[in-house]
Design a protein around this nucleic acid. Structure first.
Lengths: 110, 110
DNA sequence: TATTATGCCTACCGTTTCTAGGTATCGACA
DNA sequence: TGTCGATACCTAGAAACGGTAGGCATAATA
């Protein structure tokens, strides 16, 4: 990965995927682009990370998938957040906030 | 771990250890206590995570260790941040800030 | 005296991300 | 027409890291 881009921390990818899907149905390749774009190029999800993650997430029932043809005429697998997935997103965001807060506390220490 | 405590994200432990040592020399067991205390009990580092991490960190030259006897008369292995470790702490804090920012950007998206 | 807290350690497990490969289609361009 | 990059999917294997679960020893405390 390019030097100016940070590797993800384990545990953050699910949240990012769920979040990007919360904005609307999307296919895998598009998820990568959306995350990169929304983060101002700071986050770059590798395909080898994404597709297995999508599989896991689908198994857990957080997203549903269907094949479809989009505007450009190409086939792609579109993922959609389920109700369970929306809940999971909230849970993960809350966990993330708690962690960020906890680490901030440690870092504040003088 | 207790349910109200979050597991750490992989990649954050080094920073927490370095940070707690930046406040002064400490032994392993004390690092765990300091992190727990500073985070208001939100972060609990397991011994099985800490000691291997300390070993890794020492190998990298970020901390130096020495056995000593402390007030209570007990022996303990005291760790101290090296100059390299202090630099590493800065680097990791900067990375953390970037990641938090990047994720915030993604989450802001409507 | 028995238990709890302090203090160190290791082996193994599970999860997750990345690297590195593969396949196929489409559009642009030489 | 041929080639190349972008789009789009996938898998196998490696690497990293934190946790669980165990062990050992000593000091404090009930």
């Amino acid at each position: 990965m390019a030097k100016d881009k940070a590797d993800l921390l384990q545990g953050t990818l699910d949240m990012l995927i769920l979040k990007s899907l919360s904005l609307g149905e999307l296919h895998g390749y598009g998820i990568i682009q959306r995350i990169r774009q929304l983060s101002d190029e700071m986050l770059n999800v590798e395909q080898g990370s994404l597709y297995p993650a999508l599989y896991r997430i689908e198994q857990k029932g957080w997203v549903s998938a269907r094949w479809d043809v989009h505007d450009t005429g190409r086939e792609a697998k579109f993922y959609k957040l389920t109700r369970l997935g929306r809940k999971q997103l909230e849970t993960q965001e809350a966990s993330w906030d708690r962690l960020v807060l906890a680490i901030a506390k440690v870092r504040q220490a003088t």
